[in-house]
Design a binder for these strands. Structure first.
Lengths: 109, 109
DNA sequence: TATATTAATCGTAATATTGCAATAAACAAA
DNA sequence: TTTGTTTATTGCAATATTACGATTAATATA
């Protein structure tokens, strides 16, 4: 109960679900938007920009980092985060394959 | 606490998050895979194919239907589900815009 | 060394999601 | 009408996620 039955799904299905979770919360989408558009991507700036508590932003950053979609670089006392281009491209190709499946026409709808 | 603060994010950010939830569970990915590859897409077949309880599949179908990504057609006692092509294309363009943002090169990482 | 500054982690509270048995609803067929 | 077939809904129980205050850790600066 309440536990996702990972074992009954294919690796691809689990990977898509795992990656999709990165985008399944607006705060993480906002963080990624910010990392795309800004050349300075210090954690503290994200806190100011987005308006959630520092602990909350830090937690979201951790999830994105765990998925490999972003990487962080320590700069003195602050940490600069960036999109991990390689993983981002990899993620894109996984979703594109999923999104661009051919739809079989069938008679029911 | 524990409530997503929808109001502090942009419409686009919330829409992406909402749509991403469709793909954030392997059962829903599996259902969509099935709807793509099969010409018969009866709910009962999905239950057999995927191996979750009928109530659980029905619930996942409802979420996909609420997002508009699939549509159902009643055929006697059974219901045939299909990808909603129009909404699927719309969803694709939203994600493509998000995925294909230009990455600003910055000096920190 | 003492004091800021910045980010990660811990602990906790609250909400959300997942899964399923049981039941209801809708319809076909006998 | 009664019975079977199929799907939706209800009502839990359990796990997962979200949020944040407080604290810790690490480093820069006075």
């Amino acid at each position: 109960m309440g536990v996702t039955k990972t074992e009954i799904f294919s690796d691809t299905q689990n990977e898509i679900a795992q990656l999709a979770k990165a985008f399944a919360h607006p705060a993480r989408v906002a963080i990624l938007h910010q990392l795309f558009k800004s050349t300075t991507c210090i954690c503290g700036d994200l806190v100011d920009e987005i308006g959630l508590a520092q602990a909350t932003i830090s937690q979201h950053l951790k999830e994105l980092k765990n998925l490999g979609l972003i990487k962080g670089n320590i700069e003195g006392t602050s940490v600069c985060y960036c999109i991990n281009e390689e993983k981002w491209e990899n993620m894109k190709s996984i979703f594109n394959a999923f999104f661009n499946q051919e739809i079989k026409t069938n008679n029911c709808c």
